[in-house]
Design a protein around this nucleic acid. Structure first.
Lengths: 146, 146
DNA sequence: ATGATATCTAGGAATCATTCCTAGATAGGT
DNA sequence: ACCTATCTAGGAATGATTCCTAGATATCAT
């Protein structure tokens, strides 16, 4: 088992991704939240410590991290891409009102399959949608769909 | 059971959507394919019989049809929206190489649930990804992810 | 440590899908 | 046939993302 104390340095080296202060900040910000931020959310967070960073660097870095398997993208309809540094197999629960995304860990969902002849299936995603507790309390349970 | 011979006129009337020649053409083109076209795909098809139609009309119409439950959007990553006039409960199989989307009808998938405390779940979507027979034959099974 | 170089960063311009705005046209109820 | 709310076409605007480029820098070989 991999030690849970793996540093960002070690993780980047393992994935053969060049480490820069900007990249550490971007990845660190993403890995430190479960809120599935957009590229622009991350840009605004990282900008606090790296005032000169450009959006381009954030987009480029997220692209590199995605290609090397350090992060993945999550969709909410066709809204801007949202990112997730949690690479373990899991699924999502999306609030139709506030667009919050919650993680779902559920073995039954992870094991889903279908038989589809000559289509080679490599993976799947399940997303549930509805209204979170907060939005229900606030009476927002009537907004758009996905 | 609803007769299978329902006309576009009847269907639009039932959903209280004003029927115009452009709308009939857009909806007809979408209902007549299982290829999950983009708005621009539909624009190009409809333009053959309605040379003056604007993209705006296609986008606006698809928005109206979506809001009234006559069509729905399907996502492939964050690529442009794709549309589906098949409103029956079903899921999708997406080719990572050619981006083809196949429908899956499977009761077990339709019945999926998770218990998530105070989140009110209203629906879910399952998408499988992999490589279709054609792309496997062509050796394209190595392209991007979703 | 040093240097070489492939890769990264910042910034601005460009792109692309989609939405906004508006004036003239039209579907559908009366 | 008429009225009017709604639709259409076209062009401008937007917003997320990508492209381009010159200067900076991480990493590797020495």
């Amino acid at each position: 088992m991999r030690p849970t104390t793996e540093t960002i340095q070690e993780r980047f080296r393992r994935h053969r991704v060049r480490l820069t202060p900007q990249r550490a900040a971007i990845y660190g910000a993403l890995a430190g939240t479960t809120s599935h931020p957009t590229a622009d959310d991350l840009y605004r967070v990282v900008k606090r410590r790296h005032p000169m960073i450009s959006r381009n660097t954030v987009y480029y870095t997220l692209g590199v991290l995605r290609e090397t398997g350090l992060v993945r993208e999550v969709n909410v309809g066709h809204e801007g891409a949202r990112f997730d540094a949690n690479m373990s197999l899991h699924h999502h629960l999306i609030c139709l009102a506030c667009r919050q995304i919650q993680d779902i860990t559920d073995d039954a969902l992870n094991r889903l399959t279908v038989s589809q002849g000559d289509f080679e299936i490599l993976g799947h995603r399940v997303e549930f949608h509805g209204y979170c507790a907060k939005c229900r309390r606030l009476g927002l349970a009537k907004a758009a769909s996905i």
